[in-house]
Design a binder for these strands. Structure first.
Lengths: 210, 210
DNA sequence: CTAGATTTTGAGAGTTACTTTCATTTCATG
DNA sequence: CATGAAATGAAAGTAACTCTCAAAATCTAG
């Protein structure tokens, strides 16, 4: 590895061994190499070999870090975070309120990374079927986690059809919201969209909106 | 093509030219070859080459008929049928009633093919991520179509966030219902599950179900 | 029925994502 | 420093898909 390993970010967790730190670095190198290349040439035109080359690792290493090409551009899930926040809500808070709070919080956290990246990601979701697919896959995992949470909160069987349907319809609605946002050039406030989404899911289609 | 072209099903639309008839036959040959092989060896172990061989066509031909391997095991959509049925409902019928009626009808029509096949399909949906993914993709197309229908029925903007979210949450819920059914060994009445699903989506999670 | 236009097919070579294996290097630890 | 464990790279392999082009099957006029 001939890369100058000069830049070790200021407050980079110094507790970790050199090995762990290098792994994190490699992961980030692959990610940012991918983002750059995709912005330059588009997703399909970008091959793993190019990514490997720019990240200064071998193609095999790329696959060791990410099981598929799509996974490189997708975030590491917020799922655990959501669960945590959800469990932290007061037990007597009505479920819809908890849900709304936590979803807004998730968006907040999601905005931590550079805007460029989250926009690229949602754009790819809309434009590249493979990425969208992978995203949907991961949302079905989110659905299962939500079932769990709902079970804990409401004392219901998380495996029941009702809970599962509710969770998946929620997840489907949220996915659509992201796509809507991306398709409308990311204009406006995502939080506002989120509220409208949760209203539809909670109360059904409003009688008229025009 | 050395296959004995003896069996031209009884009432096989005789209006079509020989060319069209052959195309339909080839399509079906590829499909049933795939079903058979997948039942014998599993989905991943079944290659396009094997499928081509058993269907007595070349691999190139397989790809001419189906863009991806997953598409071979997935049904040709009911989407147009659903739209048609939906448009045929009386204009003054409340939307939830129309929806419920049409969904039951779609299930009815979907059961036309041999049980073996529809079970295999749902099983693959649960077990093979690629198939599930592809299915979700196609359901997002269904979602767009539903938006259209809802627009026609309710006079709403089919592009609005509200309609889109509603449609996708519906579609997500229905997908989960299929998976639930498959995971429970296809036992019981799908119609009953469908009713429970539509209740959840229409009225929210019932207060208690135990 | 034949000749020519059109469509469908098959053969083959090429691309690329992903897998697997194994030898080499890099880090951790006593 | 030495020894073991983990990370890496090189290389060969698989299989889904794409493209191109020539041969074969079907359709249509005359």
């Amino acid at each position: 590895m001939t890369a100058p390993d000069t830049s070790c970010s200021p407050a980079d967790n110094p507790r970790l061994g050199l090995r762990e730190r290098k792994k994190i670095k490699t992961r980030e190198a692959i990610r940012s190499a991918t983002y750059a290349l995709v912005e330059e040439q588009g997703y399909d035109a970008t091959t793993i070999e190019q990514i490997a080359e720019r990240a200064e690792v071998s193609p095999s290493t790329v696959f060791r870090y990410f099981p598929t090409k799509e996974d490189i551009v997708l975030t590491d899930e917020y799922d655990p975070l959501i669960m945590e926040e959800l469990r932290a809500r007061p037990a007597d808070e009505p479920w819809p309120d908890s849900l709304r709070y936590v979803m807004h919080r998730a968006v907040q956290l999601g905005m931590k990374e550079p805007l460029r990246v989250s926009r690229l990601r949602t754009r790819l979701m809309v434009e590249v079927p493979a990425v969208r697919s992978r995203m949907m896959e991961s949302m079905s995992a989110t659905g299962r986690m939500l079932c769990q949470a709902i079970g804990e909160r409401t004392g219901r069987d998380p495996q029941s059809l009702e809970v599962r349907v509710y969770a998946m319809s929620l997840v489907g609605g949220l996915m659509e919201t992201s796509m809507y946002w991306a398709e409308h050039a990311h204009e406006g406030d995502f939080d506002a969209l989120l509220d409208r989404t949760l209203d539809v899911i909670g109360y059904g289609l409003p009688p008229e909106n025009h």
